[in-house]
Design a protein around this nucleic acid. Sequence first.
RNA 1: GCGGGUGUAGCUCAGGGGUUAGAGCGCCUCACUGUGGCUGAGGAGGCCGUGGGUUCGAUUCCCAUCAUCCGCCCCA
Length: 418
Amino acid sequence: MRFQTPRGTHDMLPSQAHAWHWVESSFSKLARTYGYSEIRTPMFEDIELFIRTSGETSDVVSKEMYEFVDRGGRRLSLKPEGTAPAMRSYVEHSLGAAGGVTRLYYVTPVFRYNRPAKGRYRQHHQTGLELIGSPAPEADAEIIEMTVRHFQALGLRDLEVQLNSIGREACRLAYREAVLNHMASYLADQSEEFQATAQKNPLRLLDTKDPETRAALEGLPPITDYLEPESKARLEAIERLLAEAGIPYRISPDVVRGLDYYTETVFEITSGDLGAQNSLCGGGRYDNLIKDIGGPPTPSVGVGMGIERALLVLTELGLVPSAEPPMAFAVSGVPEASASVRSLAREVRAKGMACLWDVEGKAIKAQMKQVDRSKVRFALIVGSDELAAGTVSIREMATGEQVVVPASEVAAWLDARR
RNA sequence: GCGGGUGUAGCUCAGGGGUUAGAGCGCCUCACUGUGGCUGAGGAGGCCGUGGGUUCGAUUCCCAUCAUCCGCCCCA
């Protein structure tokens, strides 16, 4: 019996590790420059946390959670998104007690039981940002700007933020009526399931790709026409702030998001290089979430960014930098040189440079082959001549040039060339 | 959850109802004599995804299943 990764999951192989480190470290570095601190929460939570926040009727909760009952009878779910767990922790540990706003970032796997496709996996990974405790539009803009800066730092250009506001409760109720009235004759011909969705959350209809539904939506005023004055002012303020930051954006009435906790601001960034799953990130404001899970009313805004999707685009565009080659490989030309090679390797490593060697003590030819394969920059060769003279022949693999250096100076010699 | 494509060597892929299933790349050995790459000569490696069916005979045809890819839905 041979085993393979469960459906929709992937091993992160050694050949891909540096690309992941690159994205993650670029992200965390950026987050820290804005004053964000990392938070790590468990891989699973009380399932009720997600039902309360994302909403019973959301796709994520209704059909995509990895839920299970543990041996103690607790109903749990692998985390399907990053915000609710972070807010659970914020409330549980009273992270807001210090006063002012709280800025958090995270890097986490998330799990959704959906059908795998390009850019859509059952376990994928997200980087995320949460700015907790401020109703200011400057907070919304900071999150959006950071998201753009993150993708820019990785080398992506031609990014366009798709921004929208879905208003507060009163606005959404009014808009729901408007959608249902506008679509009444069209809906009458649709399946019961489709009608039920339309009743429960008419906003879901707006981002459809079905041409007939699109046609039926023709002439429907955007939700932004129904915004309360405060919401409208917020949206306009965000627009000004983005313009000030030089960030291209577009108001997209179709962007509505699939999680119920969003209020007012929602946004996405999409990529043409991704196919059907073209969203690189999604975020927005969630002013009621913390209150809904038992915390104090705490207006907040955040974003989640997909690492796999970013890597898909970056790979497509050839923007993933190649891994830095190891510095050296210590080769023993004769068996007696073995101890010298080990001590040489130790000295190089002590200076913080990578140095490999052949634990099996193979013939020099075989070792040189390993040197070639391991893509190191320098081979440090100790044969009988070098052993007698207390020297090392250093061969630069790319050019074949070779110099003789006193053994005691090798580490410094390499250090000067990195 | 629905529709379609694809599963043959480590990788990318060809093939085809009938004795030992192929290529390129990769891997191993040897030659080029303290030293990799280049070249030449050898070699290893496949229950043709899995289970059933049709057939004298299946890796090839049919069905199922699993995986994967592309759409739909949804999203990261």
